[in-house]
Design a protein around this nucleic acid. Structure first.
Length: 997
RNA sequence: GGGCGAAUAGCUCAGCUGGUAGAGCGCCUGCCUUACACGCAGGAUGUCGGGGGUUCAAGUCCCUCUUCGCCCACCA
């Protein structure tokens, strides 16, 4: 075995192993132990699930519901980015964890056709080939795009496999496939029949870049440094107007003469950021109480628009702010949201002067027709300046809507579109949330969710695209009658074919995505799958699509089934670079997950992401961040390598392992064995609690700490003593010391073997603990472990299908190669008394092990601080040992790990220094070196000053009567004990200082 | 304008229900100790953004101010 895990060569092999047992398919009964060969016989009928489960060894418990999760379908526009990497990793960790808990797990994958984004990409591709979609025609374009999507789908699924995603590919869904199309149609028809879908001519957000209308949510407002142009509009007194022309005074330019005849030409000044829209102005509005303009309004003045000379009314409306600009606003009802509302209220004319390409059009002076909005703006400013209408220009920062897909500035146009009425659905969703049917993790998002639903507006669902679900509405060629139908209704109506023509537009992509939890499991049919898996357990996604997707899914779920689509929503953060910027191609700060997998492996990538995914926070990473995962995976690999090699050495190969079932009785287990098992179980418990709260980062932290600090730093080091006892070190010591001591372990073969076996078991269990996060390396080791020490003679166990170590499943803890019953943790007996004894003995042992660790650390510290060479064995003698002789039980272990020799009596012949701990005072002899004691004095001094400070604060606290009266007794006692220990330690240290000086 | 969040070691961040501050990286010292130098053993480092309050006790709860993010809405 190499000292680095060769993930490149193992990845495919392990994926193949998982595939061979179809790990992701919930329809297969998994006995705890898989037989790859026999797996096909385990296919079961869903109907018989309960029966089969009962007979299987699987730890599936009836009290556990199935765990159901749908993958947020990635867009088929390209390849996966780091955000997908995070999303996938988090879900897979949750899924693997729940699978190992014995739940029936369904994780359903799929992809999204992403209407606008995909069509954009394809059109760009066509453009580079000097083609257009129009030249291709709708059918050919569709086929072309389909192929494009198909190609990306293959890449994306391969990438998911590289990440280790254990979703059920057999249930792969695509938002645009036949089944999903059925669901979309059913949805449309139902909503239409319920009166929740309507068509109308309204002001829409129009993306000139994508050539389609957008929903409000697809518009991104960005701050833009623009200008505020102050323009004089000429005031026209009613006398100048021909009374009979009041009705159609717009376009009347022949009254210009009348105006000229007025002696005093007066102006009203307006302010605008979009002067080009003045061509579409059909009024000027002021506040009804604005003293500057109130007279003009009352007297029925009109206004003459510069450039085009049109006369429009001066209107009064309370929505106009007196404070902003000049208090007078030009009104362009066809191209501005607020003006649209004014236009409706005052029955103004709607003049469309901007077309769908953001070019000027309509009833405007010829020289402007066809100019782009930008060109028109420049030209109009020029003309206004020449004609003296432009008063001034001021810089102005304002928010401008941009198409969130193409980035082009959104225009507001009048257009006929389809809409979904949202209000009632939103109310139902709010009620469900208030009832607690749905819970957000972290909960902070609930307010955002509530706010959006409370203020939701109708959803524009039609898109002027070709790639998507065609709107299932057919219009009669002559009568215009509209029929909702998936295909030409002519036949059904007994009419000639092609009597109807289908709506040209397609539906918003989200109109299929919002059905995702429904459509992927059979809806609108009430299939068994649907009944079993709906509602899903949870949804795991990034917070940026809470409106687009999450809120809408909830509404759809409730609208169509009366139930929320999932119970938990875990919203994780976005992946950003180390400076907190979004990863993007233009910034060049992106990290390609697949490239990185080739570099560091999937486990290192996964572990880092999960470790850093703190709730409610974005994940800021640079390439350096991944060291964390890389190092951890290597550590796991090497520790396992050591365990395997050592155990092979001690146990001598695979055949013998079976005998150890007998050997491993509790009486052979040592303190350190029980300790590490306890640590492992504690860790598993914390992981379970963390995972149930979607605190994946915390779970990762815990397993990291357990594996590295407890298992590697302590337990493996302990075990080296028990299994490597007959090495040179001990021989050396035996030669040197007057009283040679053969280790107990060395003389007791059974004990070595049991130690090795426990080591194997703990490793095996640790692998299970780690597997949800780093599946590849752990699975690889699990297989290697079985190569040498098969758990069962005929069955090859797959780690991904093993049981998670769990305190509540004692039988699952040490199964297979061991069946050892661990005295403290066996739960066979639950009587109160026994529990107490167990707890007491657990705490006594906990003290023992922490004292052992403290002593070893202190002795190591002395060596390190005094810079004594490692090879120098130090003699140590206890001067004082606080009511604890049990430490002597571990004499050999201490000597081994601290590289010392414990003497029975004080040796006064050479120099020595004292070491003080919380429960001991010892003398360390420095035999064969001259040693400068001043260094030690220095160290003691600095330590003393710290202790004194602590002592002071504790004593202050203890002498406070308030504290003694009010603090919790347990805490008071704790502080008192702490203080006593501190005083004692300080005393000892002080006396050492005295003796040295 | 409304909402949410963040300010903790040089850097990036943990710190769940109040009990006397942690990790990784970086830094210093010593080690290539036959699992691992992507390592081991030690070590240093913090007025927990400022101010006030509640409490025996506040990084943690409340108020307030400052700075910085994000989301939503928007006065043209």
């Amino acid at each position: 075995m190499d000292s680095r895990f060769d993930f490149e060569s193992s990845r495919a092999e392990i994926s193949a192993l998982w595939n061979s047992v179809n790990i992701a398919n919930p329809d297969i009964v998994r006995t705890l132990s898989y037989s790859a060969l026999a797996y096909s016989e385990q296919m079961r009928n869903v109907n018989q699930s309960s029966k089969v489960q009962k007979n299987s060894h699987r730890i599936t418990s009836p009290r556990l519901e199935p765990y159901v999760l749908v993958l947020p379908p990635p867009n088929l526009t390209g390849i996966l980015h780091m955000g997908h990497g995070l999303n996938c990793t988090v879900q897979d960790s949750i899924i693997r964890f729940n699978r190992m808990l014995g739940r029936e797990v369904l994780w359903l994958p799929g992809t999204d056709h992403a209407g606008i984004a995909t069509q954009q990409k394809v059109e760009a591709e066509l453009k580079s080939k000097h083609k257009t979609k129009e030249a291709l025609g709708r059918t050919a374009f569709w086929e072309y795009t389909k192929q494009f999507a198909e190609k990306n789908k293959d890449t994306i699924l391969m990438q998911f496999e590289m990440l280790g995603a254990s979703f059920d590919l057999g249930r792969y869904s695509f938002t645009l496939d036949e089944k999903r199309a059925q669901a979309v149609f059913h949805c449309f028809k139902t909503l239409y029949d319920r009166g929740l879908i309507y068509k109308g001519n309204y002001l829409v957000n129009w993306s000139p870049g994508a050539g389609t209308a957008l929903s409000d949510d697809e518009v991104e407002y960005k701050e833009v440094q623009g200008h505020l142009y102050y323009i004089n509009y000429q005031l026209v007194p009613p006398s100048a107007l021909n009374v009979t022309s009041q009705q159609d005074r717009i376009h009347k330019t022949d009254i210009a003469q009348n105006i000229k005849n007025e002696t005093k030409v007066r102006h009203i000044q307006i302010a605008t950021t979009r002067p080009e829209t003045l061509l579409g102005d059909t009024a000027v509005a002021v506040h009804p109480e604005d003293p500057r303009y109130v007279d003009f309004v009352e007297q029925g003045y009109s206004v003459r628009i510069p450039v085009c000379g049109r006369i429009v009314p001066l209107i009064a409306d309370a929505r106009v702010s007196q404070e902003f600009g000049t208090g007078a606003v030009k009104v362009t009802p066809a191209h501005d949201k607020n003006d649209y509302a004014l236009g409706i209220a005052h029955e103004l004319a709607f003049m469309s002067v901007i077309d769908e390409h953001a070019c000027m059009q309509g009833d405007i002076p010829n020289e402007y027709r066809g100019l782009s909005v930008g060109e028109a703006r420049s030209k109009i400013i020029e003309v206004l300046e020449q004609e003296g209408h432009l008063v001034c220009t001021k810089p102005h920062v304002h928010q401008v809507g941009h198409c969130h897909r193409t980035g082009t500035v959104v225009q507001f146009l009048l257009s006929e579109q389809w809409y979904v009425r949202m209000h009632d659905m939103a109310q139902k969703a709010l009620q469900a949330w208030k009832r607690g049917d749905i819970v957000f993790y972290p909960q902070t998002w609930e307010k955002t969710f509530e706010h959006w639903l409370t203020h939701v507006r109708d959803w524009c669902i039609s898109r002027q695209l070709w790639w998507g679900h065609r709107i299932p509405v057919w219009y009669h060629r002559e009568t215009g009658e509209a029929i909702v139908s998936i295909s030409d209704p002519s036949d059904k109506k007994g009419l000639e074919k092609n009597s109807y023509v289908q709506d040209k537009n397609v539906l918003d992509t989200w109109f299929s995505s919002w059905l995702w939890p429904l459509s992927t499991i059979g809806w609108p049919q009430h299939t068994k799958e649907f009944i079993k898996y709906y509602p899903n357990t949870s949804l795991v996604t990034a917070y940026d699509i809470i409106f687009f997707w999450v809120a809408r899914m909830i509404m759809a779920g409730i609208e169509f089934t009366g139930l929320v689509p999932f119970k938990h929503i875990y919203l994780h953060g976005l992946v950003r670079d180390a400076q907190g910027r979004k990863m993007s191609k233009s910034l060049g700060n992106g990290i390609d997950p697949i490239e990185l997998i080739h570099e560091i492996g999937p486990d290192a990538l996964r572990f880092t992401l999960v470790y850093m995914c703190a709730q409610g926070r974005d994940v800021l990473i640079s390439k350096d961040s991944f060291q964390l995962g890389t190092k951890f995976v290597t550590k796991v690999w090497n520790a396992s390598r050591f365990v395997l090699a050592s155990c092979e050495n001690v146990l001598g190969g695979s055949g013998e392992i079976m005998e150890y079932k007998e050997v491993l009785k509790s009486k052979h287990l040592k303190l350190v064995d029980r300790w590490i098992v306890g640590e492992l179980q504690d860790c598993a418990r914390v992981v379970e609690r963390a995972m149930s709260q979607y605190r994946v980062d915390e779970a990762a932290h815990e397993v990291y700490k357990f594996f590295w600090n407890s298992f590697c730093d302590w337990y493996i080091e302990f075990s080296k003593f028990y299994i490597q006892v007959e090495d040179d070190f001990n021989k050396d010591r035996a030669d040197k010391t007057s009283k040679p001591k053969t280790s107990k372990a060395a003389t007791d073969g059974t004990r070595i073997q049991s130690s090795a076996t426990v080591l194997l078991v703990v490793l095996q269990q640790s692998l299970r603990l780690l597997h949800p996060f780093i599946p590849f390396v752990t699975e690889k080791i699990y297989q290697l472990l079985q190569d040498r020490f098969p758990f069962d003679s005929d069955i090859r166990h797959v780690l991904a299908a093993e049981a998670y170590p769990h305190i509540d499943h004692p039988d699952t803890f040490c199964h297979d190669i061991t069946n050892i019953v661990l005295p403290h943790f066996s739960t066979g007996d639950n009587t109160q008394k026994k529990t107490e004894t167990r707890e007491m003995s657990k705490s006594r042992e906990a003290t023992e092990i922490s004292e052992l660790q403290e002593l070893i650390s202190e002795l190591r510290r002395v060596r390190s601080e005094l810079q004594l060479p490692k090879k120098l064995k130090l003699d140590v003698c206890f001067v004082e040992l606080k009511d604890n002789v049990s430490i002597y039980k571990h004499k050999d272990l201490i000597e081994f790990l601290a590289l010392i020799k414990l003497l029975d009596s004080e040796n006064r012949e050479c120099q020595s220094i004292k070491v003080v701990g919380s429960f001991f005072e010892a003398r360390v002899y420095i035999t064969n070196d001259d040693y400068d004691f001043s260094a030690q004095t220095q160290l003691i001094r600095s330590r003393l000053s710290k202790l004194h400070e602590q002592e002071k604060s504790l004593s202050k606290q203890l002498s406070n009567p308030q504290f003694t009266q009010k603090a919790k007794p347990e805490y008071r006692e704790k502080i008192r004990l702490q203080y006593e220990t501190l005083v004692e330690t300080t005393k000892k240290l002080a006396s050492i200082l005295d003796s040295v000086e």
